[in-house]
Computed example of a mutant assay.
Amino acid sequence: MSAASPRSPATLEQPGEGRLAHAGADHPPVPRKKVGVVLANLGTPDATDYWSMRRYLSEFLSDRRVVDYSRWLWQPLLQGIILTRRPFISGKAYQSIWNTERNESPLLTITREQAEKVAARLEAAFGDEVVVDFCMRYGNPSTDSVIRRLHEQGCERLLFFPLYPQYGSPTTATANDEVFRTLMTLKWQPALRTVPAYFDRPDYIAALGGSIQQAYEQAQADQGGRPDVLVASYHGVPERYLLDGDPYHCQCQKTTRLVKERLEMADDEIVTAFQSKFGPEKWVGPATVDKVAELARAGKKHIAVISPAFASDCVETLEEVQQEIRDAFLAAGGETFTYVPCLNADEAHIDVLTAIVKQELGGWL
Rank of each mutant, 00 (worst) to 15 (best):
L12Y: 11
H22C: 11
V37W: 00
L39F: 11
A40C: 13
G43M: 10
D49L: 05
S52C: 10
L57F: 04
S58F: 12
R64W: 09
Y69M: 13
R71A: 15
L73R: 00
R86P: 09
R86A: 04
G91E: 09
A93E: 12
A93L: 08
Q95M: 12
E101W: 06
L108Y: 11
T109Y: 05
A115R: 03
K117G: 06
A125P: 00
V130E: 03
S142I: 08
S142R: 02
S145G: 13
E152G: 13
L159V: 06
F160K: 03
Y164N: 04
P165Y: 14
Y167P: 04
Y167F: 13
A173Q: 00
A173W: 01
N176T: 13
E178T: 14
L183S: 03
T185D: 04
P190G: 04
P190Q: 03
A197W: 06
F199R: 01
Y204I: 09
A206D: 10
L208K: 06
G209F: 06
I212T: 11
Q214C: 14
A215M: 07
Y216C: 14
A221K: 12
G225E: 04
G225C: 03
A232P: 00
L242I: 11
C252Q: 02
C252S: 03
Q253G: 14
T255I: 13
E264S: 15
T272V: 15
Q275Y: 05
E281V: 15
T288K: 08
V289E: 11
K300H: 15
T317E: 01
E320N: 02
R326M: 11
A331P: 01
P341E: 03
A348R: 13
T354K: 02
Q359K: 13
E360M: 07
